[in-house]
Design a protein around this nucleic acid. Structure first.
Lengths: 209, 209
DNA sequence: TGTAAAATGTTGCAAATGCAACATTTGTTT
DNA sequence: AAACAAATGTTGCATTTGCAACATTTTACA
């Protein structure tokens, strides 16, 4: 995953942050971060810690949208922060730096060498996000639970370059990612084993085709 | 939808295109555009016409991923163009301009005034894409067809700022967008009418809650 | 280390949904 | 205007799936 300040040295990071009117806030665990954010478009960088985007249904059902860890980025550019159904909860003590999107046209900063690197990093991050979403959509558009599971496994195998891999999340989280019932997913995974299509050992998966 | 060259005059558009080593190609109808694209990262802008991204399953099932019209943008930054399962088909005579992503650091162009506008447009386009995908995911993660339909209608109502709106696609395409069986969707829509939750008149929908 | 919380595994059952196979209407092209 | 293609509407049926309600194992943490 690309870091917003990748390939920029500390001095220039500080310089850029200054020009972009960056503010850094440290939050305790289990706090809703979005509640004290202003109206302007912003980009948030997690310096340390992690947050989880959660949405709450009209009938109170919570679902986890996304988890973002240290180095990760989120912002009003790519997420409707004024949406009351969505909250962004710190999962631990978390430090976040906010930069104002509008200040990226700041004349002074445009002339600095690090600026173009910064912009390229930003573009890279956004592109990666689109790609990630495309992968998720590719899974979710599959009609059956079986095909969703296999599509996820295929993506993992392709990322790791091997038909054998350990999934990086719990099965509970995986069910959430595929948007299927956990127990139905477990059931389908045993069918896949019965049919000789996969082998499993805990979270280690091997594709047999 | 943002155009990549929005707020840039024709002279500067030509200048930028020159610096970014832009090439323009006109394709006939029903041609796979991705087949003759090189390895470098690129951004494609549809000057005129429309294309459709299609994926073909292992057992030959075609599904439409996305339709992009005049002014729209796509590229290897946000889509794996080397994926053999995915093709990009022109739906009519279509003119496309390609720019090389790596040339956006071109020193000469950085100094031009229009450059920052161009970059901001690009960032805006990418952000919009992430937002669009988020909306789609919000729909697809709903468990029931009914909730998928209602989520789509809610998004439409919110975009138009009215509980009464005309959906911009056919019901066949909508079923595809929600990734549900078309006939099952039609059935569920009549239930929604029976339950007094919506009213319909052709593609015009009114939310009654 | 002990205890609570979270993750995992399993199964019955009702409800939802994909699929197939139609009829009918609307739109497009020559 | 005729002919064809695409979109829409409808229904029966088998299958899949969510849901609930458990038991068991693993992990977190005080």
């Amino acid at each position: 995953m690309t870091n917003l300040f990748e390939n920029i040295n500390d001095i220039n990071i500080r310089k850029i942050k200054r020009f972009l009117r960056a503010t850094t806030i440290t939050y305790p665990k289990n706090v809703n971060v979005l509640s004290n954010v202003n109206q302007d478009d912003f980009i948030a960088i997690i310096d340390n810690g992690s947050v989880q985007f959660e949405s709450t249904d009209y009938d109170g059902n919570k679902s986890i949208i996304e988890t973002i860890n240290t180095g990760g980025t989120f912002g009003s550019l790519t997420f409707p922060i004024d949406n009351e159904e969505i909250s962004c909860i710190t999962k631990e003590v978390t430090q976040i730096t906010y930069i104002e999107y509008n200040s990226i046209t700041n004349d002074e900063i445009i002339k600095t060498d690090s600026y173009i690197i910064f912009i390229k990093n930003l573009i890279k991050i956004l592109s990666d996000q689109v790609n990630e979403k495309n992968n998720r959509i590719e899974i979710l558009t599959k009609k059956t639970t079986r095909d969703k599971i296999l599509e996820y496994f295929k993506q993992q195998a392709s990322e790791r370059g091997s038909k054998s891999f350990t999934i990086p999340i719990s099965f509970t989280e995986l069910a959430n990612h595929l948007s299927v019932d956990r127990s139905a997913m477990t059931r389908e995974i045993s069918y896949l084993k019965d049919d000789g299509i996969i082998k499993t050992n805990g979270r280690r998966i091997t594709l047999l085709y």
